[in-house]
Design a protein around this nucleic acid. Structure first.
Length: 357
DNA sequence: AATCCGGTCAACCGCGCATTG
DNA sequence: TCAATGCGCGGTTGACCGGAT
């Protein structure tokens, strides 16, 4: 099947947008909604490809876009989500309110990637470049990698499912309010979490689980089956204490350099997240609570040899070589870590959404 | 003052997936 | 069932800018 061009290339303007063009596009979408992107340029009087219009709208003109410097919390979230999801910028963007995938991608490529490299962390694998910092045996590293791969698979499958549900919800909303440009939280139905969330929950609880490919379990689709999933009953809870531990005083976020020095110390030297607890007071943003939780666990786990065993425990493997005390301590670390993961999962939902219990 | 160079980021390109007829 | 179409995603490009020489 040959691929047809997205639009007639001849006579269409390319390159930077002028304020006049922006104004035309804004005015048209505000009045009519974007509708079909292909048809939009002619209707709006723009000599642009529909694709170009969509990009300009989604990455620049959309009113719900937050522009400007990324906060430390956002940077941490991006790093941890990238460790989990890789270059899936759109998926990462769903966890960062008001940031576009393009902006996150650019920020990663121009800032974060270099910083991680300076810290001795491979920005692709999120592991120490030399390997000497981890102090892990090869087989354990492989075990961690396997677990992380599974986690990424589950998260990817979950994101795909939720994206599908979001699309369906959007379509329903659009049908009821044709001119609506944005999803309202109250319009989002309380769909059930995909089964993979149960696996995540079971993981840190130490339950025995079957690590089949998540894609094989995600067979439900609202549109294809004609059935909506049952109401969500398995929303995962983050304990009060765990949430509180990731609150952070905003006045300690003023010095970016010192923050990064702290991150370097925490993550490269393998300090566990608790040392940060005392500093993490005051940030009320749920997405950050979750992201910071991961921050202590995910990349930290990658870089901290002492935590390697935790991952296998997370996935239900026993560790007979540990004392009861250290086992309990690591259980607590596991719980905090997985609560961090689940914090991100849950915080993806709009804060105004009704509880999905 | 002119040139070079690296960083940044808006925008483009091509591909893959979902939907439609 | 399959081709056509539309859209979104990730990778890449190139214009612009500021600092260094």
């Amino acid at each position: 099947m040959g691929r047809s061009p997205c639009c007639e290339k001849v006579g269409l303007k390319k390159g930077p947008w002028t304020p006049e063009e922006d104004q035309k596009l804004l005015a048209y979408i505000e009045e009519h909604g974007h509708g079909s992107w292909r048809a939009l340029p002619s209707k709006a009087g723009l000599q642009r490809c529909g694709k170009s219009c969509r990009l300009r709208w989604t990455n620049y003109l959309r009113p719900d876009i937050k522009r400007g410097k990324f906060s430390l919390q956002e940077e941490q979230s991006i790093i941890q989500l990238h460790a989990l999801l890789g270059n899936r910028w759109s998926a990462i963007a769903t966890h960062l309110p008001k940031r576009t995938d393009n902006e996150i991608k650019n920020y990663w490529n121009t800032h974060l990637k270099k910083r991680l490299a300076k810290m001795g962390i491979d920005p692709v694998t999120h592991k120490a470049i030399t390997g000497s910092l981890t102090g892990t045996a090869d087989d354990e590293s492989a075990k961690v990698a396997a677990s992380l791969s599974h986690m990424a698979q589950w998260e990817s499958a979950r994101l795909e499912a939720e994206a599908r549900l979001a699309r369906e919800s959007k379509m329903q909303t659009a049908a009821s309010t044709p001119t609506a440009l944005h999803l309202q939280p109250t319009n989002i139905p309380a769909y059930a979490s995909p089964p993979c969330l149960d696996v995540l929950q079971n993981a840190w609880q130490g339950a025995k689980i079957d690590l089949e490919s998540p894609t094989s379990t995600l067979t439900f689709t609202g549109s294809n089956s004609g059935m909506l999933p049952t109401p969500r009953t398995n929303r995962l809870e983050i304990s009060e204490s765990n949430s509180a531990m990731w609150h952070q005083r905003s006045d300690e976020l003023e010095s970016e350099e010192s923050d990064w020095q702290f991150l370097s110390k925490q993550q490269v030297l393998g300090l566990d997240g608790r040392e940060r607890e005392e500093d993490l007071i005051g940030c009320e943003e749920p997405w950050f609570i979750g992201a910071a939780g991961v921050g202590s666990g995910f990349t930290g786990m990658l870089l901290d040899g002492s935590n390697v065993h935790d991952t296998s425990e997370c996935w239900g493997e026993s560790n007979n070589g540990q004392t009861e005390h250290s086992s309990q301590a690591s259980d607590e670390e596991d719980k905090n870590y997985w609560n961090g993961i689940l914090g991100i999962v849950n915080s993806e939902l709009p804060p105004q959404s009704p509880p999905l219990l």
